[in-house]
Protein backbone atom coordinates (compact mmCIF):
# COMPACT_ATOMS: atom_id res chain seq x y z
CA UNK A 1 0.00 0.00 0.00
CA UNK A 2 1.22 3.47 -0.86
CA UNK A 3 -0.08 6.75 0.50
CA UNK A 4 0.52 9.66 -1.85
CA UNK A 5 -0.89 12.63 -0.05
CA UNK A 6 -3.18 13.84 2.68
CA UNK A 7 -5.29 17.00 3.06
CA UNK A 8 -7.41 18.57 5.78
CA UNK A 9 -10.13 21.11 4.97
CA UNK A 10 -11.91 23.10 7.67
CA UNK A 11 -15.58 24.07 7.80
CA UNK A 12 -14.76 27.28 5.97
CA UNK A 13 -13.62 25.13 3.02
CA UNK A 14 -10.03 26.23 3.46
CA UNK A 15 -7.20 23.71 3.09
CA UNK A 16 -5.50 23.97 6.48
CA UNK A 17 -3.05 21.12 6.11
CA UNK A 18 -1.50 19.15 3.29
CA UNK A 19 1.30 16.67 3.11
CA UNK A 20 2.73 14.46 0.40
CA UNK A 21 4.67 11.24 0.73
CA UNK A 22 6.18 11.03 -2.71
CA UNK A 23 8.92 8.50 -3.37
CA UNK A 24 12.13 10.04 -2.08
CA UNK A 25 14.34 11.76 -4.59
CA UNK A 26 17.09 12.39 -2.08
CA UNK A 27 20.71 11.97 -3.19
CA UNK A 28 20.96 8.98 -0.87
CA UNK A 29 18.53 7.16 -3.10
CA UNK A 30 20.68 5.20 -5.55
CA UNK A 31 18.03 4.77 -8.22
CA UNK A 32 15.74 7.74 -8.77
CA UNK A 33 12.73 6.84 -10.88
CA UNK A 34 13.61 6.82 -14.55
CA UNK A 35 12.15 9.17 -17.13
CA UNK A 36 11.07 12.78 -17.01
CA UNK A 37 13.25 15.67 -15.97
CA UNK A 38 13.57 14.67 -12.33
CA UNK A 39 11.06 15.55 -9.64
CA UNK A 40 10.38 19.10 -10.74
CA UNK A 41 7.51 18.35 -13.09
CA UNK A 42 5.63 16.38 -10.49
CA UNK A 43 3.62 19.06 -8.80
CA UNK A 44 2.81 22.40 -10.33
CA UNK A 45 1.14 23.88 -7.32
CA UNK A 46 -0.08 22.18 -4.15
CA UNK A 47 -2.48 25.02 -3.44
CA UNK A 48 -4.24 24.57 -6.76
CA UNK A 49 -4.41 20.83 -6.20
CA UNK A 50 -6.03 21.37 -2.83
CA UNK A 51 -8.65 23.69 -4.30
CA UNK A 52 -9.47 21.24 -7.07
CA UNK A 53 -9.68 18.37 -4.63
CA UNK A 54 -12.00 20.27 -2.33
CA UNK A 55 -14.25 21.27 -5.18
CA UNK A 56 -14.43 17.66 -6.32
CA UNK A 57 -15.11 16.02 -2.97
CA UNK A 58 -17.60 18.71 -1.99
CA UNK A 59 -19.62 18.22 -5.17
CA UNK A 60 -19.41 14.45 -4.92
CA UNK A 61 -20.54 14.51 -1.30
CA UNK A 62 -23.53 16.67 -2.16
CA UNK A 63 -24.40 14.51 -5.11
CA UNK A 64 -24.12 11.34 -3.02
CA UNK A 65 -26.46 12.79 -0.40
CA UNK A 66 -28.92 13.89 -3.01
CA UNK A 67 -29.17 10.41 -4.51
CA UNK A 68 -28.66 8.26 -1.44
CA UNK A 69 -30.33 10.31 1.29
CA UNK A 70 -28.88 12.37 4.12
CA UNK A 71 -27.37 9.39 5.89
CA UNK A 72 -25.41 8.27 2.87
CA UNK A 73 -21.74 9.17 2.82
CA UNK A 74 -19.22 9.64 0.08
CA UNK A 75 -16.35 7.30 0.90
CA UNK A 76 -13.93 7.09 -2.00
CA UNK A 77 -13.44 7.21 -5.74
CA UNK A 78 -10.87 5.48 -7.92
CA UNK A 79 -9.16 6.37 -11.13
CA UNK A 80 -6.70 4.38 -13.21
CA UNK A 81 -3.83 5.77 -11.15
CA UNK A 82 -5.00 6.54 -7.66
CA UNK A 83 -7.79 6.22 -5.12
CA UNK A 84 -9.16 9.13 -3.13
CA UNK A 85 -10.57 8.52 0.35
CA UNK A 86 -12.87 10.97 2.08
CA UNK A 87 -13.98 11.32 5.68
CA UNK A 88 -16.10 14.11 7.12
CA UNK A 89 -16.78 14.75 10.81
CA UNK A 90 -20.02 16.18 12.21
CA UNK A 91 -18.06 19.39 12.84
CA UNK A 92 -17.49 19.66 9.07
CA UNK A 93 -13.81 18.85 9.13
CA UNK A 94 -12.94 17.01 5.93
CA UNK A 95 -10.04 14.62 5.67
CA UNK A 96 -8.84 13.44 2.27
CA UNK A 97 -6.19 10.85 1.48
CA UNK A 98 -4.80 9.77 -1.87
CA UNK A 99 -3.44 6.25 -2.13
CA UNK A 100 -2.65 3.67 -4.78
CA UNK A 101 -5.61 1.92 -6.39
CA UNK A 102 -5.24 -1.42 -4.58
CA UNK A 103 -5.76 0.06 -1.12
CA UNK A 104 -8.89 -1.00 0.73
CA UNK A 105 -11.14 1.44 2.56
CA UNK A 106 -9.22 4.02 4.58
CA UNK A 107 -12.27 5.35 6.41
CA UNK A 108 -11.12 3.84 9.63
CA UNK A 109 -7.62 5.20 9.17
CA UNK A 110 -8.94 8.70 8.57
CA UNK A 111 -11.20 8.36 11.61
CA UNK A 112 -8.19 7.36 13.69
CA UNK A 113 -6.23 10.33 12.42
CA UNK A 114 -9.12 12.54 13.49
CA UNK A 115 -9.54 11.17 17.02
CA UNK A 116 -5.94 10.30 17.86
CA UNK A 117 -4.01 13.07 16.15
CA UNK A 118 -6.29 15.98 15.26
CA UNK A 119 -8.31 16.08 18.49
CA UNK A 120 -5.36 15.19 20.71
CA UNK A 121 -2.66 17.42 19.30
CA UNK A 122 -4.45 20.27 17.56
CA UNK A 123 -7.79 20.77 19.28
CA UNK A 124 -6.59 20.03 22.79
CA UNK A 125 -3.58 22.29 22.55
CA UNK A 126 -4.93 25.23 24.55
CA UNK A 127 -2.62 27.66 22.81
CA UNK A 128 -3.56 26.71 19.28
CA UNK A 129 -6.27 28.93 17.75
CA UNK A 130 -9.81 27.64 17.28
CA UNK A 131 -9.87 28.68 13.66
CA UNK A 132 -6.87 27.58 11.64
CA UNK A 133 -6.62 30.39 9.15
CA UNK A 134 -3.79 29.60 6.76
CA UNK A 135 -3.10 26.42 8.70
CA UNK A 136 -2.21 28.20 11.94
CA UNK A 137 -1.88 25.79 14.83
CA UNK A 138 -2.01 22.66 12.70
CA UNK A 139 1.64 22.49 11.79
CA UNK A 140 2.83 21.62 15.25
CA UNK A 141 5.52 19.08 15.89
CA UNK A 142 3.41 16.54 17.75
CA UNK A 143 0.76 16.42 15.05
CA UNK A 144 3.19 16.29 12.14
CA UNK A 145 5.36 13.62 13.72
CA UNK A 146 2.36 11.59 14.79
CA UNK A 147 0.86 11.74 11.34
CA UNK A 148 4.07 10.86 9.56
CA UNK A 149 4.71 7.90 11.86
CA UNK A 150 1.15 6.67 11.59
CA UNK A 151 1.07 6.85 7.80
CA UNK A 152 4.52 5.31 7.37
CA UNK A 153 3.39 2.53 9.66
CA UNK A 154 0.64 1.71 7.19
CA UNK A 155 2.95 1.46 4.20
Amino acid sequence: MVVYSFYIFDRHTECIYSKTWLPSFSSADPSPPAGGGGGTTLRASTADDAKLIFGTVFSLRNMVRKLGGDNDAFVSYRTAHYKLHFYETASSLRLVMLTDTATLSMRNVLHQIYINLWVEYVVKNPLSPVEHKGGAGVRNEMFEMGLDQFVRGLM
Binding site: T89, Y114, I115, W118, V119, V123
Partner: peptide, 22 residues
Protein backbone atom coordinates in the same frame (compact mmCIF):
# COMPACT_ATOMS: atom_id res chain seq x y z
CA UNK B 1 -18.53 29.44 24.12
CA UNK B 2 -14.80 29.21 23.48
CA UNK B 3 -14.64 25.97 25.43
CA UNK B 4 -17.59 24.56 23.51
CA UNK B 5 -15.97 25.22 20.15
CA UNK B 6 -13.21 22.79 21.13
CA UNK B 7 -15.07 20.45 23.40
CA UNK B 8 -17.35 19.32 20.58
CA UNK B 9 -14.41 17.70 18.80
CA UNK B 10 -13.51 15.78 21.93
CA UNK B 11 -17.17 14.79 22.26
CA UNK B 12 -17.27 13.53 18.68
CA UNK B 13 -14.05 11.60 19.15
CA UNK B 14 -15.10 10.06 22.46
CA UNK B 15 -18.76 9.34 21.88
CA UNK B 16 -18.09 7.39 18.70
CA UNK B 17 -21.12 8.88 17.03
CA UNK B 18 -20.93 8.46 13.31
CA UNK B 19 -23.91 10.35 12.05
CA UNK B 20 -25.72 13.55 12.73
CA UNK B 21 -28.80 13.68 14.90
CA UNK B 22 -31.85 13.52 12.68
Amino acid sequence: YNIGLRLIEDYLAKSNTVRRCS
